[in-house]
Each structure stands twice: as C-alpha cells, then as structure tokens.
C-alpha cells in the first residue's frame, strides 16, 4: 500500500508516500521524520504532550491520521520560531517566557504546552480578552497535563508573553 501525502512541515514541503494508513501525524513526525520534539505521553488525546499547530490550530497529533491531512500546514516546536520569521537560534516570545518563569521542570510536556500556548494566543485574535485573564488561560491550557506541576509558571509565562507581544504590536 502506498499513499501519497503532501505536508508542509515547519515551512518545508514534504512529498511523502506512506506505506501504512494507520500512521498518526505524531508517529509520522517522531518515527519517520526525526522531529522528536513533539512528545507522546498517552497516545489518546488525554495529555496534550503532542500538541502541534495544524493549519494554525492546536491539535493533538496523536489523534490525527497523517493521511487525513493531505495538504496541511504543520508547525512543530522545532519550527515555531522560524515560522514567525525569527532567525535560527532565536526563541519565540512564548519560549523565552517559559524559561523566564520556570514554566517546566522535566520538560517532557513543554513542547506541547508551548504549542498549545501559541495556539491560545492566536485564538485570542478573535476573542481579545482571552489572553490576559488568568482564569481563562488556565482553563484553555487544561488540555495539557504537567505532572511536575509547573502550572503557575505556565500561566504566568503565557500572560507575560501575551503582554510583551501586545506591547510590541506583534502577533504570536
């Protein structure tokens, strides 16, 4: 079985031929494209460690079949900064805010948290008060589990990055 799938991943076009329709987007990234920044914590959409941006929206890559997303544009943690026009080696404001606010300990859920946070900030474009209300940020980040318990830092980092972006007149 060979199934052609064209995906743009972190700005790069991939013309793939999959030998298996069961391959999830997560396993495609991790096991076939060596994009291992996206993590597998549960493989059933319950932990959020695999969050990526798919056509600009945050999704659990473990619940997306790769063949269902022919033509999609995907941004993973590895491509986040560059997808926003930053130079290689530079950090996205959410990434640097996560460091500043110690918004992680072990770091395993962190790529998913950050991609989810960026998705949240983009959702805030159409819901302006969403990203400066701690209660709403907590609620909207509750699909991303952190077993180390870095939630305070995560919330603070998102509020901080949001404020910094707003002050700079920039978008996430």
């Amino acid at each position: 079985m060979s199934i052609p799938v064209a995906l743009t991943i972190n700005g790069r076009r991939h013309a793939l031929v999959l030998d298996d329709p069961r391959v999830t987007l997560l396993d495609l990234l991790r096991e076939r494209l060596d994009l291992t920044g996206t993590k597998k914590g549960c493989d059933r959409g319950q932990c959020g460690a695999c969050t990526v941006l798919l056509d600009g929206r945050r999704v659990n890559a473990c619940l997306a079949l790769a063949v269902s997303h022919d033509g999609a544009d995907i941004v993973t943690i590895e491509g986040l900064a560059e997808s926003c026009g930053l130079e290689p080696g530079q950090l996205h404001p959410v990434q640097s805010a996560f460091i500043d606010h110690d918004a992680f300990q072990c770091g395993f859920c962190t790529p998913g948290q950050i991609m989810s946070a960026v998705g949240l900030l983009r959702e805030a474009r159409s819901d302006p008060n969403l990203d400066d209300d701690p209660e709403r940020v907590r609620e909207l980040m509750s699909g991303n589990l952190c077993r180390c318990g870095a939630y305070l830092g995560i919330t603070e980092a998102i509020l901080d990055a949001s404020a910094r972006l707003r002050d700079a007149g920039a978008e996430a």
């Binding site: 920044g37 943690i77 590895e78 900064a81 950090l91 990434q95 770091g107």
Partner: peptide, 9 residues
C-alpha cells in the same frame, strides 16, 4: 537546559 527544552532539542 532551558533552551533545549523549549525548542524540542
């Protein structure tokens, strides 16, 4: 290890 952990590296 912060930069490694926020970039997926």
């Amino acid at each position: 290890d912060g930069a490694l952990k926020v970039t997926g590296a």
